Computed example of a mutant assay.
Amino acid sequence: MTSVDTHNAVSEPPTPHDSRPLYISTGDEEQHFKAAYRQGLSIVLKGPTGCGKTRFVEAMAHDLDRPLITVSCHDDLTTADLVGRFHLRGGETEWVDGPLTRAVREGAICYLDEVVEARQDTTVVLHPLADHRRQLPIDRLGITLDAAPGFGLVLSYNPGYQSVLKDLKDSTRQRMVAIEFGFPAPETEEEILTEEAGITQGTAATLVRFSQAIRRLKTPGLREVASTRVLIAAGRLIAEGLLPRDAARIAIAAPLSDDPTVQAGLLRMIDTYVGGHASGVPALIS
């Protein structure tokens, strides 16, 4: 016997945060997001890894008093992972909604993080949701769902990191309002670090100067630059009692590259911008 359970199989979407997640605006992005959301427009956030896109969406969901369902996209993500599939339970087969379907039914914001990591045939299912129709066809059930009031679709990706083979289809792009993100201005990034990591303004300023130097580098072995996220991690280690140079080494320099030459250069920069030799690092690379 086959049954379609569209109530009990769907867990409740997460409720909005009690307190607003820390996000400091750098321009008009909050106004633009809320205007697009109120008009039922889908949104794509474009910007480097770790610049605050996810935190921004969390803050917007809080401000708009909407549940937020986040999906971290990857190469193996299938349409069924987003929409749902049949499961065998207690000898019967029942339908279980995926996160996208839950959001459509419940009027939640569905955030697909790094959407281009998913296969392009998977993202095609977003098209009728992302345009004026605001509908989700579920072929396996033979139904089409109209998005509940309050539903919002938000995608994000890093255009500087993706290859030609991993990019957002033009047919998807033109259904979206695009909001560009970059790293915050130095004074804003310092404020974020003092709030998030609990460090002094002086320590935050040191980490930000170090990150800016890395961001100016043009090195083939450096695929990504120091993000606000890794600066926060370093700051938290410093707040825990680690020396700033050690925190910078393990939270900023080490994750950015496995190339020994690049690593040596980053460690020399730690000496310049943070100070001293990191413990356990031979002097020959200082």
Rank of each mutant, 00 (worst) to 15 (best):
P16C: 02
R89N: 15
R140W: 00
P159G: 09
V125F: 05
I109E: 03
A226P: 07
A59P: 04
E92V: 14
L129I: 13
E224H: 07
L231H: 07
T26S: 14
R134P: 09
L284K: 12
I138L: 13
A264W: 02
T122L: 01
G107R: 01
L193F: 09
G241Q: 10
P16V: 01
D5W: 02
F151T: 05
Q39Y: 13
T123G: 01
A264H: 07
A35M: 10
L256A: 01
L112G: 09
V164Q: 09
Y37H: 14
A178Y: 01
R173T: 08
G150I: 01
F33C: 05
V262Y: 03
D63S: 08
P260N: 08
D121A: 04
R66L: 05
Y273F: 15
D146I: 00
E12P: 03
A9V: 06
T172K: 00
T194Q: 11
A205I: 01
G265H: 05
S163R: 14
L153W: 07
I179C: 04
H7C: 06
A36G: 05
N158W: 02
T172H: 13
H277T: 10
L126F: 00
Q120N: 03
S72M: 10
E114L: 10
E94R: 15
E30G: 00
D167V: 08
T261A: 14
C110Q: 05
R175D: 06
P16T: 01
L242C: 12
K169T: 06
P220I: 13
L100S: 11
L45S: 10
H62P: 02
N158M: 03
L217Y: 00
D75W: 02
D271G: 12
C51P: 06
Q212A: 07
R55C: 10
E196A: 15
L266M: 02
S19P: 00
G276Q: 11
T123N: 02
R223M: 07
W95T: 03
V281R: 00
E106M: 10
N8W: 10
Y273Q: 06
A264Y: 02
D139N: 09
T54V: 10
G47N: 09
A108W: 05
V274M: 06
V281K: 00
P244D: 14
L136E: 09
K53E: 13
L129H: 12
L112Y: 08
G160A: 14
T15Q: 15
R249Y: 13
L231Q: 14
S211T: 12
R229V: 06
F56S: 03
T101H: 08
I69Q: 05
P48Y: 14
Q263I: 08
C51L: 05
R38Y: 06
Q39K: 13
L153C: 06
G152M: 03
A248E: 12
I179Y: 04
V208E: 08
H32P: 00
Q135C: 09
L266W: 03
G98I: 13
R215Q: 08
W95I: 02
F151P: 04
H7T: 15
S3K: 12
G276D: 15
S72Q: 12
I43V: 15
L242F: 14
V104L: 07
S257H: 07
E94D: 10
A61T: 02
D5P: 04
P128L: 09
E92L: 11
L284P: 00
E195G: 00
S42I: 08
K169S: 12
T228V: 15
D18S: 09
R119T: 12
G182R: 11
